[in-house]
Design a protein around this nucleic acid. Structure first.
Length: 183
DNA sequence: TCGAAGATTGTCT
DNA sequence: GACAATCTTCGAG
């Protein structure tokens, strides 16, 4: 999904960004994945068919956007952690008035949802049509992709399942002790 | 019905 | 770099 463009249309307008950072959540055998809890009301869409959105709230305050990747019932998804603003930048600034630099608009999973206008009401929607679309963008060469452990989790914290674009200004901050390697 | 934990962010030092 | 805010979700009692 790196290099693909995520676009969200709301009554306020359209905002979009190029995906530069993702994390994989593998399913019920991944201790950090929400699917370990089984099928619950919260994880209903995570267990849905591939190609739909799974949006959930963390820490009571922020939304996180995922794309479901495996067949219905598995419960695996890719979390989008950061995007590079492409269109609707003015709208993003209006939604996040406290942000000074454009690179801080979307360099985190909660930030990009706030900037693009993604909320829980969009969870479960197919990603190949309005209002929420992931479309093909510029391919990222393998040499420009780095891998590191996932961020902000406590279980299976050492699994190398975070993927991001090398040298991108728009990737979220990497903890210093995290060792990233190339493909 | 209650309590603990959480795929984060923003602010303060 | 440290820590508080904030509230939904889910398991236990």
């Amino acid at each position: 999904m790196l290099g693909a463009v995520l676009e969200c249309r709301t009554p306020e307008g359209v905002a979009s960004g190029r995906i530069v950072e993702t994390e994989a959540y593998l399913g019920p055998h991944d201790p950090a994945c929400h699917a370990v809890a089984g099928l619950t009301e919260r994880t209903r869409h995570l267990h849905g068919p591939p190609g739909i959105a799974y949006v959930y709230r963390v820490y009571g305050a922020h939304w996180c956007f995922n794309a479901v990747t495996q067949p219905k019932g598995v419960g695996a998804a890719v979390l989008v952690r950061a995007v590079e603003p492409v269109g609707g930048t003015d709208l993003m600034r209006a939604r996040r008035p406290s942000v000074a630099r454009d690179r801080d608009l979307t360099n985190g999973p909660g930030k990009l949802c706030a900037a693009l206008g993604i909320t829980g009401v969009l969870s479960g929607l197919q990603l190949d049509r309005e209002p929420l679309v992931v479309r093909h963008g510029d391919d990222v060469p393998d040499g420009d992709v780095l891998v590191s452990p996932r961020i902000g989790i406590t279980r299976a914290a050492d699994w190398p399942l975070r993927w991001f674009v090398k040298d991108s200004e728009y990737v979220s901050k990497t903890p210093r002790h995290f060792e990233a390697r190339s493909l």
